[in-house]
Design a protein around this nucleic acid. Structure first.
Lengths: 146, 146
DNA sequence: TTGAGGAGTATGCAAACGCATATAGCTGCC
DNA sequence: GGCAGCTATATGCGTTTGCATACTCCTCAA
């Protein structure tokens, strides 16, 4: 394994470990109420969207297969947290958005979760380090840089 | 939301996004053969252990419930990739280790996967940045710093 | 205008997951 | 020494997931 490969892999492994450790910490909290973490993740993604978005667009932000996401949206809709509407400009597309109830629920959970995140993360990294981490991860999150 | 909380949360969100983007990229490759990514993850974890480890210890490294891990080890054992043995010093414990076949399989997949990781990651970050990322993520991955 | 090919979403089905709990073994206090 | 309570792993069961594919609608070229 060449030097660059090794460095790349240890860095990626560290990122995976950090992700796993913190996800477990968050999962252990009783913040989530009626939603699973994945459902919350979708609700959170929707909460950042100024307008309804398609399932495909939603899928870009979520680590889940398309059918699983489709059914997850089903469940959120059944709970009245999310609305589906046809896209007037493309009959194939279903546009998804939070209902008022969904928005409230997301906010309530989000507030608590944000505190957990802050607690977990600021106890391990300084503000300067957090800034660096964000910069690095944003670069990593870009698609297809090839 | 206080300034520190905001910074902490945007950094964490960036890390999640990076994780999701790259995981999707890796999942899309046909590297995995007969194993799922999670199964590979367990095999990889075992490959780094000089001696057999308990299911509980394994569980610390994997983002999965204990019963799910228990059954995942079942599957690996059925495929002959993993061996279970009783712990002589504690009758409750099951010690897990890779078989020769398991080690080979992990190595084969691991080689390809390492190349994918290197390709994905070095195209987005410089060696210096990778070093920083590793340092930051290692700090993040530490447990209970409270 | 029509039909071939493609994109977006949903559904059938088997596999995998999480939660609750059972089981087996350890530990420590009376 | 024996029982209460704890830790480690496994199992029952309902839910969620992924894969393959169906279905619907769009696009584009002849």
């Amino acid at each position: 394994m060449a030097g660059g490969t090794r460095l790349a892999n240890t860095a990626w492994e560290a990122l995976m470990a950090a992700h796993a450790t913190l996800m477990k910490e968050f999962a252990a909290e009783r913040t989530w109420q009626e939603l699973s973490m994945r459902e919350y993740d979708v609700a959170y993604t929707l909460s950042k969207c100024p307008a309804p978005i398609s399932v495909t667009e939603l899928h870009r932000h979520v680590l889940l297969s398309q059918p699983a996401l489709s059914r997850l949206v089903d469940r959120l809709a059944e709970q009245g947290l999310v609305e589906r509407a046809p896209d007037p400009s493309d009959g194939r597309v279903v546009l998804v958005s939070l209902t008022a109830l969904g928005r409230d629920t997301q906010r309530t959970i989000g507030r608590q979760h944000a505190r957990s995140v802050a607690r977990a993360v600021t106890s391990r990294l300084s503000p300067a380090e957090l800034g660096q981490l964000e910069t690095l991860c944003r670069k990593l999150a870009r698609r297809n840089p090839e």
